[in-house]
């Protein structure tokens, strides 16, 4: 057999449940074959709300990363950023589908035509005040260093949360978390490699990385503040109280910045939840305009 054939043979032998194509695998039913029964003693409205929080963080960060496409410093890096965005989009899709499966759809279901699946209705037909993401993911992109610092912080927080969420009493959340942990480990690693190179690189790259850290750190203010919904679910073994991951996140970020010869900015004082309750700046509205424009103009369009 010609050696050239062997590598891509794996394409044919890929397990069908591990599709990695951007399009074409398992797009009909995101939770097909999964028992979506709500665990005993859990308010479905709480569970759906929590899925929106985690799902919106992923969806909005995916969109921010996607804005680098055609603008990344190198083609190789553009593909890496695109892959990370696609991973996050996949997580968002499952989480929004889970929110839909427990009936948390808000006004989106009234706005979206019937043929639009729940997760698309949630992504494309909610207004900014119905989104539950934090400022850490919605803040506008800066330069490449800023993007890598933000990705490092966001991936570190999300990895710490999902790692614990693997023990959730909700089997759907536990499964989504287990899948996400591998992805986020890679995202965090990718960002950390760049932070090391930029921080411990040239004078200019160091300056930009430090400025990125200074800009990103204040965005952590409400990341560790639990909403009442999260507190109720955490007490019931369903969700992770974000305050629990603070120590790990601080330790990881301090370690990476230290090795990158960057100064760790002061940690912001805890602020009450804002984004998780639907309070956002105008930058989220702009982002959603871009994200939702096509779907709203041409509902259920296919191509």
């Amino acid at each position: 057999m010609a050696h050239e054939e062997t590598v891509y043979e794996a394409l044919d032998h890929a397990h069908s449940d591990e599709g990695h194509w951007a399009f074409g695998t398992g797009f009909d039913e995101p939770l097909a074959g999964v028992d979506t029964t709500v665990p005993e003693g859990v308010d479905p409205a709480d569970l759906g709300e929590y899925c929106l929080m985690l799902g919106d963080d992923a969806l909005v960060l995916a969109q921010r990363l996607t804005q680098w496409i055609t603008n990344a410093p190198e083609l190789e890096e553009e593909v890496a950023i695109g892959n990370i965005a696609l991973d996050l989009l996949g997580q968002a899709r499952l989480l929004l589908a889970r929110a839909g499966s427990v009936g948390v759809l808000g006004r989106s279901r009234e706005r979206a035509t019937e043929s639009i699946p729940d997760e698309d209705a949630l992504a494309y037909f909610r207004d900014p005040d119905e989104f539950r993401c934090t400022a850490l993911v919605e803040a506008e992109n800066g330069d490449f260093a800023h993007t890598m610092l933000r990705l490092l912080a966001a991936a570190t927080v999300r990895l710490a949360v999902l790692a614990r969420l693997r023990e959730s009493r909700d089997p759907v959340l536990a499964a989504i978390a287990a899948k996400g942990v591998n992805e986020l480990t890679y995202h965090r690693d990718h960002a950390a490699r760049w932070v090391l190179r930029l921080g411990d690189g040239t004078e200019e790259s160091h300056r930009r990385a430090q400025a990125g850290a200074e800009a990103v750190w204040p965005l952590l203010a409400d990341v560790f503040s639990a909403t009442p919904t999260e507190q109720r679910l955490a007490a019931g073994g369903i969700a992770v109280d974000p305050a629990e991951v603070r120590g790990e996140v601080h330790a990881v970020l301090t370690e990476v910045l230290g090795r990158a010869t960057l100064t760790v900015p002061g940690w912001p004082a805890d602020a009450p939840p804002r984004g998780r309750l639907g309070e956002h700046g105008p930058e989220l509205a702009e982002l959603l305009d871009e994200l939702q424009g096509l779907a709203r103009e041409h509902p259920a369009a296919t191509w």
Binding site: W68, N71, A72, P73, E74, N141, G142, D143, F144, A145, L196, R197, L198, D200, G201, T202, E204, S205, R208
Partner: peptide, 14 residues
């Protein structure tokens, strides 16, 4: 940390 791009056109922003 190995070779890093230097110079005024360092690839750190769009």
């Amino acid at each position: 940390h190995g070779a890093v791009p230097t110079g005024p056109e360092v690839p750190v922003e769009p």
